[in-house]
């Protein structure tokens, strides 16, 4: 347990609920984010991630539960200025320039004229759009718009940044650029809560992953913790042998109770719990069956496996 875990949370949700008609979009969600932490809300479309972000940012009224920002109830006057919101849509003025958009959002977030001008200079540098400062945002590529969209949400240097699918529809290059921008914010101590349905994004951009499905939090922890809690620490091992098998291989009992592999195939697949000991035993068994090993692949369990294990479904749309 790190020192950060002893600090009070900068954002805390307790038993939060929200329904739209008969649809329960958020169901008894409790969540706490500590200062400087990056948390990914992972879940399929329709899981309730965006609704949760909207509730935190004050755009959707809670049916039940409570929220605190920096230890103050969310209703406290001015407390929401600690939040920055980057919506999923490109919510910018397409007929304004980059600089004009940034300046407008700095002003809307309460910065003085002078502070806004200074912050615009920083944002242009941060986004790498200094040369496009006077160009109309409406003519930008999707990736560039996303960068401006992100910058507009942090003009007031919020302590907590809420990002709703920040890289939807952008090319890999732009995505990496956005990840670098987020890393800079994290280094500066900004607490980040991002929603995503992309596993690699959740894995790379967060210290903690909260898996949401059908409005409920079904798992919460680091990737390793989630793996440990769900599919366990077993590894998938694929061994390629020097020739097609004449029949299934007989293995040592602690590796597999049943013979492995299929006649005519040159690959043997199995799971092992302890790589340091069992992989050696596995390779030894293959050789004892009269085959040489030509290649070995060891796969750690992925978030995909975790999600599948927890929900019984692949990450899905809708």
């Amino acid at each position: 347990m790190t020192a950060a875990h002893h600090e009070p949370p900068v954002l805390e949700l307790r038993d939060v609920e929200k329904s739209f008609g008969s649809l329960r979009a958020i169901d008894s969600v409790s969540l706490a984010l500590r200062g400087g932490e990056a948390v990914a809300l992972l879940g399929p479309n329709g899981a309730g991630k965006t609704t949760l972000i909207r509730c935190i940012s004050g755009l959707t009224r809670l049916d039940r539960g409570s929220m605190q920002i920096l230890g103050h109830p969310i209703e406290t006057e001015g407390i929401r200025s600690a939040l920055g919101l980057v919506p999923q849509e490109i919510a910018l003025y397409g007929d304004l320039t980059t600089k004009e958009n940034l300046y407008a959002f700095a002003r809307f977030n309460g910065l003085s004229r002078r502070a806004s001008r200074e912050r615009v200079g920083w944002a242009l540098k941060w986004t790498g759009l200094e040369k496009r400062a006077r160009d109309l945002v409406g003519f930008f590529s999707g990736g560039m718009k996303r960068r401006v969209n992100l910058a507009c949400g942090v003009m007031h240097s919020p302590q907590i940044l809420l990002l709703d699918e920040p890289t939807v529809g952008v090319d890999p290059q732009s995505r990496q650029r956005i990840f670098r921008m987020l890393a800079e914010l994290r280094d500066a101590g900004t607490t980040i809560l991002l929603t995503t349905h992309q596993l690699d994004e959740a894995e790379q951009q967060s210290d903690r992953i909260v898996i949401v499905d059908q409005g409920r939090i079904i798992a919460d922890g680091s990737k390793d913790q989630l793996v440990e809690q769900s599919v366990g620490a077993s590894r998938l091992v694929k061994i390629r042998v020097d020739r097609p098998l004449k029949g299934p291989l007989k293995m040592q009992n602690h590796l597999s109770g049943e013979p492995l592999g299929e006649t005519g195939k040159d690959v043997v697949t199995t799971r092992i719990d302890d790589v340091s000991h069992h992989l050696t035993d596995l390779l030894h068994s293959v050789r004892q069956n009269g085959y040489d090993v030509s290649d070995v692949e060891v796969h750690a369990p992925s978030l995909q496996h975790v999600f599948l294990h927890l929900t019984g479904n692949e990450l899905r749309d809708g």
Binding site: R54, S57, Y93, G153
Partner: peptide
């Protein structure tokens, strides 16, 4: 329609 309004309302405006 393009959610700029919601974004504006999430600021101090």
């Amino acid at each position: 329609e393009n959610q700029t309004l919601e974004r504006l309302l999430s600021t101090r405006l």
